[in-house]
Nucleic acid binder design. Structure first.
Lengths: 106, 106
DNA sequence: TCATAAGACAACCATTTGGTTGTCTTATAT
DNA sequence: ATATAAGACAACCAAATGGTTGTCTTATGA
């Protein structure tokens, strides 16, 4: 099995997508993030760990609080892959056409 | 736990991303997709099932072959979410600014 | 015609995932 | 000064994931 724990896997979980959405509007600590979610603070902390491990959020200490800040540049990896796949997909007919031309030649 | 098995989860696996990449260039049957991957045909078939379940590929019978064709429109869901999050994130300073203005007023 | 290749179906397995609870440390606010 | 809130750390758990192998059915091509 190949190394996982990348941006794609990070945004695969709906809870983590909601966390990112929430943090997009400004930094929050772990307790604040946990509000509105029906899960324990520990569960949130685990999600935070995953998100920070792949660079989607930045942590900073502020007293006893752990402040989380979104850092969405890494999402480029996702849009890049989608764009690339879409590009290939849109060209798929050209490939077919080329094949038909080559076949006719013979 | 919330319902998973969506496009985000489908593209979370690197093998499935490679399958999509391969199919972006034209339809293939399951055996053909399996070539170059170091895993069993059955494993490939499982990935195909997941991808077709969330509409990223279309299946069609051709004799005893199962032909798979990419259908990447569903990836909009991903780009839409990324775009939306990015938009919020880019506006986060305006929010802060507004807060500071309101604070000064008092 | 008949061996064979394509793939469905099922059982199984180890690891990962997403969550829980409990204990411990340490800043903070009254 | 001290109760308390924030969160780290660890152990635990059920379910999901990504893979395997074996058997069975059925089109196909020599």
């Amino acid at each position: 099995m190949i190394e996982r724990r990348d941006v794609f896997q990070a945004i695969a979980d709906p809870t983590r997508r909601m966390i990112i959405h929430k943090l997009s509007q400004g930094p929050l600590n772990i307790t604040q993030i946990g509000e509105d979610f029906g899960i324990s603070k520990q569960a949130i902390a685990k999600h935070i760990k995953i998100l920070s491990e792949c660079g989607l959020i930045l942590m900073s200490q502020k007293g006893r609080q752990q402040v989380c800040e979104a850092r969405l540049d890494q999402l480029d990896e996702v849009t890049d892959w989608v764009t690339e796949s879409r590009k290939l997909w849109n060209n798929r007919f050209e490939k077919l056409e080329q094949f038909l031309i080559n076949t006719k030649k013979q």
